[in-house]
């Protein structure tokens, strides 16, 4: 297929439609509003639903309802809106519903700013909502990868019956790059016999619910869900590794930051420093094994984020003291530049 230039936000919307999503519930917020605008234009033309909810709280609960009714449903927002969705995400996890939530992260806390950031890592991978639950988090770093990750997100959500977050940042949402979309004609979506589509008097009622008053019943249910989470940790880790074989220092970065880090690594290599990159594509499940193996072979690990240091905690847990784990971060919407990352690399080799 012909490549077209597309903004990250629009690419997400188009990919979602091609992945079979016909129900989108949104609420405007910079820097992701183009997703809603695209859906508003396209959905009516293809018999789908675009609805601008009265708030993010309403939007995520519309997703809850639609997902429970068996359709591929999606919502998108940016940081402050995701905070509002956190309650709904917890209920969705508790009711084993598949859906996709997009977070085009901006700087926080509070109203913060609208420029790119990665300071919602904790919120995404460590909960955000209440209770014992997990959410798959996919963090692409190019517009083509955004497209591929959107398909992946819907597939994983259905496969494991759970919420999946697609996490980008203002830079990825706003920038354009060439993309090609896979041909999806004839692809069948999975059957969902658990959905509330009406019994038609042919089966027992289906119930979508997260309330379990009896502690042992709830514990058994959560333990069962945990088996699924362990399976995901074994099978669904995705990452990119580059130049790790001979590396003396390994950088860990995800999303847009990884692109900047790659430029710094290139310069380090030109100057005789053997630097490599591990780029988590799934933030949960986290690529702990590769990082832990790498930590045993290198002088140091340098984690670079657009935050004050969030993913670095998981990198440290994975490295388990095998080598020092350093951190370089910019925050508040400031994007690190390759030259500064290069200077950091030089400090540790």
């Amino acid at each position: 297929m012909d490549k077209v230039l597309m903004k990250g936000n629009e690419a997400i919307a188009e990919a979602a439609i091609r992945a079979g999503c016909r129900h989108f519930f949104g609420y405007p917020i910079t820097p992701q509003t183009e997703i809603s605008a695209y859906m508003a234009r396209r959905m009516p033309k293809i018999g789908g639903t675009f609805l601008q909810a009265e708030s993010e709280v309403a939007a995520i609960n519309m997703v809850y309802g639609a997902a429970g009714a068996g359709v591929r449903a999606m919502t998108s927002s940016s940081s402050p809106g995701i905070s509002l969705k956190s309650e709904g995400i917890s209920y969705i996890a508790g009711a084993d519903l598949p859906c996709v939530i997009v977070n085009i992260v901006r700087a926080g806390p509070g109203l913060g700013g609208i420029q790119p950031a990665q300071s919602d890592y904790f919120q995404a991978v460590k909960g955000g909502g209440h209770g014992d639950y997990r959410m798959i988090v996919v963090a692409p770093s190019s517009i083509q990868e955004i497209v591929d990750s959107t398909f992946l997100a819907f597939d994983l959500a259905d496969k494991y019956r759970m919420p999946v977050m697609l996490m980008g940042d203002g830079m990825l949402g706003q920038m354009m790059e060439p993309v090609a979309f896979p041909d999806t004609t004839g692809v069948k979506l999975p059957e969902k016999e658990w959905a509330t589509t009406g019994t038609k008097k042919m089966r027992k009622p289906n119930i979508i619910n997260s309330l379990y008053i009896q502690p042992d019943e709830l514990e058994a249910l959560i333990k069962n869900r945990w088996k699924k989470y362990i399976e995901i940790e074994q099978n669904e880790v995705r990452f990119e590794a580059e130049g790790t074989e001979d590396a003396e220092i390994i950088l860990v970065a995800y999303g847009a930051t990884a692109r900047i880090v790659k430029a710094a690594i290139k310069k380090a290599r030109e100057n005789g420093i053997k630097a490599g990159l591990i780029r988590p594509i799934t933030l949960w499940p986290f690529p702990s094994d590769v990082i832990s193996a790498a930590a045993k072979k290198v002088k140091a690990i340098l984690c670079v984020e657009m935050s004050m240091g969030q993913m670095v905690e998981d990198v440290r847990l994975s490295a388990a003291g095998a080598c020092p784990v350093h951190f370089y971060g910019r925050t508040g919407g400031v994007v690190p530049i390759p030259a500064d990352v290069y200077d950091e690399i030089r400090r540790y080799v």
């Binding site: 994983l156 496969k159 999806t184």
Partner: peptide
């Protein structure tokens, strides 16, 4: 259609 194709960027 689980797409595991994720593009790699060399810089």
């Amino acid at each position: 259609m689980p797409s595991k194709r994720l593009n790699y960027i060399a810089i």
